[in-house]
Computed example of a mutant assay.
Amino acid sequence: MVIEMGRPGPGGLGDVVRVLEEWQGDEAPLQLHPGDVGWFWRFGTQRTADAVRTWSRAGEILAVGLLDGAQLLRLAFAPQAWRDEELARRVAEDASAPERGVLPAGTAYVEAPVGTPVREVLSEGGWNSGESWTPLRRDLGAPVPDPGVRVEVIGPDLAHEWAAVLRASFDRSTFTEERWRAMAAGTPYAGARCLLARDERDRAVAVVTVWSAGEGRPGLIEPMGVHREHRGHGYGRAVTIAAARTLRESGSSSVIVCCPSSNVGGVATYRSAGMEPLPERLDLYRDAS
C-alpha cells in the first residue's frame, strides 16, 4: 500500500502525541519523544501543528517528524516499522525534496534514531554526518536520593519566575511567561511537571521540565537550566536529581536526555546526577551546495 505524508493540523496533534508515547521504550534507541513536541508547543498550537509531519500506510501512522526550526527535522518511527525500507525511502525522499514542504532548499539537518534505514538512505543520497550528541539515561527502578535543595512544582502563579530563570540560563533565550502558558496548555503537558530549585536564601536558581510518556516508559528532561549567577554550586545536579524523582513518582521507567557532546559541562552535570551516557550519535546534514 502507498505511504502518504500528512500534516495532522491542530485537531490531529492528540493522535500524534499518543503514538509517540506508545513508541517509547527502554529497549529502543532514543528518538523523538512526546516531550519534544510538548516543549515546541510553547510557540502555540497552530505553529506546532504546522511543524509536524506524519507518514502513514492504510491510515496507520508509522513515522512522525517535527520541524524543530526551519532547517531541522527530528524523527521517530513505530517499532513495527523500524526496518521498513519503503518507509525509510519515502521519508528520505520527502526530506530531500524542498518542493514537498518538509525541509527547505540549501542547508538542512535530520535527526534520526540510530538503527533505522532512513540514515542509510540519506547517506546514499549525499547527506553527511554532522554534530555529535550524547544521550544519557538513568534507570528509575531504584529509589532516587533527595536532591538536597528545596524544589517546587510550579503552576501558573510562578510561571513568571520559572521563565525568568530559564532566560537567565541560556544566552539567546526568549522564553516568556506567555510561552510557558502556551506550553502548559498543550496535550503533552498533561504528564509533565516544571520544577524550580531554590537556594538557602530562597532565590530561584535552577529549572527543569520533565515529560512523561506514560507508566513504564522513559520520561524526558527538556529543558534544564541553571541561572548564570548561581552556577558552580551543584544546582544543575540537584534539579536533575529532582527531575528523576518526579518521573519515578509518575511511574516512568527511566529518565533520558540528549545533550550536544560539545557541551562538556552539560554532559558532566547529567553524569553527576547519576545518568549514564549511551553511545554518541550523529545527526545528518546537507550543505547549501
Rank of each mutant, 00 (worst) to 15 (best):
G125A: 13
V267R: 09
R89A: 14
P223A: 04
A273T: 04
Q71Y: 05
P10M: 07
T48G: 06
I3K: 04
A81W: 01
R137T: 11
A51R: 04
G232T: 08
A288D: 13
R74V: 13
Y270S: 05
E86Y: 03
G216Y: 05
D157W: 10
Y235R: 07
A242V: 09
C258E: 14
E21R: 15
A49P: 07
A197F: 03
P113D: 11
P135W: 10
E111T: 12
P117K: 02
G106T: 07
T54Q: 07
A163L: 00
S212Q: 07
C258F: 14
V19M: 08
E177D: 14
T54E: 08
H33V: 04
G125T: 01
L196V: 11
L284R: 06
S56R: 15
E178Q: 13
E152F: 11
E111S: 15
D287C: 04
I61C: 11
E200Q: 14
L195P: 06
E111Q: 13
E200D: 15
R181H: 08
A184R: 12
E27D: 13
P223M: 02
A182P: 00
E249K: 11
P188R: 09
P10F: 00
A238F: 02
W133F: 15
A92P: 02
W180V: 11
W41F: 12
T269P: 01
A242T: 09
G130C: 12
A28L: 14
G148S: 05
G38F: 01
E161A: 11
L220K: 01
S56G: 03
G265S: 08
G251F: 01
A182V: 00
E280Q: 13
V149M: 06
H33Y: 08
P135V: 05
I61E: 01
S129C: 11
L284F: 07
V208R: 04
R83Y: 12
T174G: 10
L166V: 00
P8W: 10
A185E: 14
T187E: 15
H160F: 12
G141Q: 09
L73W: 05
G148D: 06
L136P: 03
T246V: 14
V239C: 11
E215Q: 14
A78R: 08
W41V: 00
P8C: 06
L166D: 05
Q46E: 15
G115N: 10
R42H: 14
R286I: 00
S261H: 14
A238L: 03
E4P: 00
P104N: 11
A92C: 04
G115S: 10
E131R: 15
S253P: 01
G214F: 03
E85K: 14
G38W: 02
L196A: 08
P145Y: 08
E86K: 10
L30F: 14
A112W: 03
P10I: 12
A81V: 01
P147E: 09
S96T: 12
R181K: 13
A164V: 02
R228K: 12
L32W: 01
L66C: 10
E152N: 03
L66I: 08
C194K: 12
P143D: 13
V17Q: 02
H33I: 04
A112S: 09
A108P: 00
G214N: 05
R167F: 04
R74D: 02
G266E: 00
G44K: 03
I3P: 02
R231K: 10
A81L: 01
S132P: 00
E229Y: 09
G214A: 08
A288C: 05
A163P: 01
M224R: 12
P188T: 04
G35N: 08
S250Q: 15
